[in-house]
Design a protein around this nucleic acid. Structure first.
Lengths: 329, 329
DNA sequence: CTGTTAGCGCTTTCAG
DNA sequence: CTGAAAGCGCTAACAG
């Protein structure tokens, strides 16, 4: 049941090194033998043993994808799943496999990465940045592991692909302003994430663009209690808020709407914009403009950048910034 | 930079075979040497090279997870992502890695599976059944590859873990009946999927339980056009339908509600139940009762069944059926 | 162009 | 208990 290169060599009456060369398209094999060998391999459906190849070549043939902690969580799963699908596709087209590294609920991100690296299970990594400690990153760089980040972390300068958080935010908040909103508040995600900062910057820029002087930003960690408090602070301090920009989507939006409704009652006339796009937004009680991230492109791009560095080429830049699409309502 | 078993052996002044034994907890090593070796390995943070181990042991140390085609799609991604996260966890706890096999948009499911198997990249497979052709399955069985299915396919009898589609459907439709609905129609998914059939059976059983004689089932492939037509057929034939049971959730539900609204106008008083649970259901115009699948449990169970067969133990049964939780509205 | 040989790093006999 | 040696399947030098 185990078909090896030796069988092929025997059948073709050649040395296994010849088979190896023929199969790998190397030169130094007569056209005649090459044909014979390829035909044989094809007929017998021979595939070289991955472990043996990996051992001989000192390369695993897999890349790893590191999920952030909360990837399993409901809607954010949809986000990661779309990216993974694209990465898997790209990997396959390079004849690589895709390993998923999902940190346990408790243990830290570094452990699984470390092990997989030490064991030489992967040749490169794509890491959902979110909150990657710079310690882990410097280890990676030190060990010269090729890797690319999805999203960026503060204090980390490395290959990354991300969406243009600031520009997109600016655009959609400008849209709110153009609709006549004058008191546009911002409900932001966790302050420590780069993407939150960038999106807030975009928000502020849009206000400046529109000549609005008033602004208000509150941060939260996406959990109902904090969201409640954050919105409370916003509404408590200003009773004339007429629009809200949220720097992240998903269920967070539902929470926010609940809280808003509870404090303000009727929401008609209230403006809303969100960074992220889910179709159900159209079924909530107010129109929501939103930003749609190019998920497949993020996956495809990060994978191809990774393969580029794995193949020793040096990309001409460090950061790939993709556009988010605006969906105006 | 490459720390191998040889270095450890040298430092410990023993043969590498002794190191191997010590590290793998085999007997035949003096307590003294074992301690020394373990200490050394710990200090130097030695991890055996996975490929070498795989080659020597003829086992890859990875299991594969086969996604169905449309997994990247929006909300269904959330579903798979939750399962994968659980599987990854379980794999890690068995010291296995998780390989993701995602079929390309065009190519068939068999190709990637076949290659990964032939190359001995995985020791076992978890397959999102959905529509797995029985040909592929028989190949797997023939090659004696350990695998378990998530969900079931008609004509395939093999280890599988699934949710109790019929019982859950029966329960939730009974709930509709208990609320006084008398004309409960069923909007089903694709007829060829087992889960659709089972859910329809549950629906019919519930009607019988409630002593209702009237029933109506229409199938569709989840696409707006077909959904429109299916609902059209239901409403066209019966103008007194007062409730709808949908055998699947996600965006499908939004489409259905759109269509319903368009034909019936006001939906108040209309009853609705759905197999699947998303929080946004609570924000639609009518209350929706629903069934929540135990996603993590599905992942964990399928993985542990897989490991059981991989370890040569023969589970006492072929099918694991988990309960879906009902969320009544 | 071809075959022989020597590893890749690990496990596993099997003498000592 | 210990270590030398063989071998997992493949690739890469190097003679011929």
């Amino acid at each position: 049941m185990k078909l090896t290169i030796n069988e092929i060599a025997e059948l073709a009456q050649v040395a296994k090194s010849t088979v190896s060369k023929a199969l790998n398209g190397q030169k130094g094999v007569s056209e005649e033998k090459r044909k014979l060998i390829l035909k044989l391999a094809e007929q017998l459906d021979y595939h070289p043993n991955a472990s043996a190849q990996a051992l001989a070549l000192n390369r695993s043939g897999s890349i790893g994808f590191v999920l952030p902690h909360q990837a399993g969580m409901s809607l954010s799963g949809a986000y990661w799943s779309a990216i993974i699908t694209a990465v898997a596709q790209e990997a396959r087209s390079h004849n690589y496999n895709l390993l998923i590294l999902s940190p346990g609920p408790d243990d830290d991100l570094a452990a699984p990465i470390d092990s997989v690296l030490k064991r030489r299970n992967v040749d490169g990594l794509i890491i959902g940045a979110e909150h990657l400690d710079s310690k882990a990153v410097s280890t990676l760089i030190l060990e010269e592991v090729p890797f690319v980040l999805i999203g960026r972390s503060p204090n980390v300068r490395h290959y990354s692909v991300d969406v243009d958080n600031e520009a997109a935010s600016r655009k959609i908040v400008s849209h709110l302003a153009s609709k006549g909103r004058r008191r546009i508040a911002c409900l932001a995600g966790p302050r420590e994430h780069s993407y939150t900062q960038e999106r807030v910057q975009g928000y502020l820029a849009a206000l400046r663009d529109a000549g609005l002087e008033w602004s208000a930003v509150e941060y939260s960690n996406y959990e109902l209690e904090e969201v409640t408090r954050a919105i409370g602070r916003l509404l408590g301090a200003h009773d004339d808020i007429d629009a809200l920009y949220m720097t992240a989507g998903g269920e967070f939006v539902l929470d926010a709407i609940d809280v808003l409704k509870a404090s303000k009652g009727d929401l008609s006339g209230f403006g809303m914009a969100v960074f992220d796009d889910y179709r159900f937004f159209d079924y909530l009680s107010i129109p929501i403009s939103r930003l749609r991230q190019p998920l497949s492109a993020i996956g495809t791009t990060s994978a191809s950048v990774l393969f580029e560095i794995m193949e020793g080429r040096k990309p001409d830049r460090l950061e790939w910034v993709l556009e988010a699409e605006t969906v105006l309502r």
